[in-house]
């Protein structure tokens, strides 16, 4: 509680002020500059601000809470160690998501054996028991859970490019500008990537669950 209070006070204290190069003191770039200079509280602020975004992104790559939290921790650790490599022309969030993508890909490659079918089933059963649902009708709840699982499996079966496009646009509802920055392409190319990713997702569902896709 005390920690939260302290962290909340920091932006308020420096609000509406600018640093020597004209950036708002609470902008990501300014915080990165301060963190580069050894101000660890600035990096903590960055962590608090973007933790949820990275966590949601990581959760789509490793749909287990503890795995996603490990990914988030590793992403921010790598970000802290490589702050000197961050270029200001890119968004800090884009840079973080790129780190998360690279680490998630490596991690998935390393943990392929661990993700056995039994673990996935046990994970699904546990989620069913722990999370529950907002819906009252058990049948509707079951059907919704089944569809969710089908789509999640299909997303995980996609290549990384398609998967990232789907996650960023359809799950995280990011702007096409940010997606274009992530992929280092134009906005039109980003739209095309998302379009192809959706078609690939539909084809994957048809391939595994038939023409109607169980929908």
């Amino acid at each position: 509680m005390r920690d939260t209070l302290r962290l909340d006070l920091v932006p308020v204290k420096i609000k509406n002020s600018t640093n020597s190069i004209g950036l708002p003191m609470d902008s990501d770039q300014a915080l990165v500059e301060r963190a580069r200079g050894g101000d660890f509280s600035a990096f903590e602020t960055l962590f608090e601000r973007h933790r949820e975004l990275v966590y949601r992104f990581a959760y789509q790559m490793a749909p287990r809470r503890d795995d996603a939290e490990d990914i988030v921790q590793e992403v921010f650790l790598r970000a802290f160690k490589n702050l000197h490599r961050y270029r200001d022309e890119a968004k800090f969030t884009t840079w973080l998501l790129r780190i998360a993508t690279n680490y998630g890909t490596d991690r998935a490659r390393m943990h392929t054996r661990r993700n056995t079918l039994e673990q996935q089933e046990a994970d699904g059963a546990l989620r069913w028991m722990t999370e529950g649902s907002q819906m009252d009708d058990p049948l509707t709840n079951l059907e919704q859970e089944r569809r969710k699982q089908i789509v999640r499996n299909a997303i995980n079966a996609l290549p990384d490019q398609h998967k990232n496009a789907i996650v960023m646009r359809d799950l995280e509802e990011m702007d096409y500008e940010d997606i274009a920055e992530f992929f280092e392409c134009t906005v039109g190319a980003a739209k095309l990537r998302v379009l192809r990713a959706r078609r690939a997702l539909r084809d994957e569902i048809v391939r595994t669950h038939g023409v109607d896709g169980g929908f």
Binding site: D3, L7, F40, E44, F47, E48, R51, E52, Y55, R56, Y59, Q60, R65, A68, E69, V72, Q73, F76, L77, E131, Q144, R147, K148, V151, R152, I155, D170, L171, E172, R198, L201, R202, I205, D212, G213, F215
Partner: peptide, 28 residues
């Protein structure tokens, strides 16, 4: 099919809350 797929996407956004604390990050 595509509308059904789009309708399923919001349910995928429902994820459990992140419990990674600042202290844990600092320790790491």
């Amino acid at each position: 099919e595509m509308r059904s797929l789009n309708g399923t996407m919001p349910s995928l956004r429902e994820i459990s809350e992140c419990q990674l604390t600042t202290e844990r990050m600092r320790d790491a």
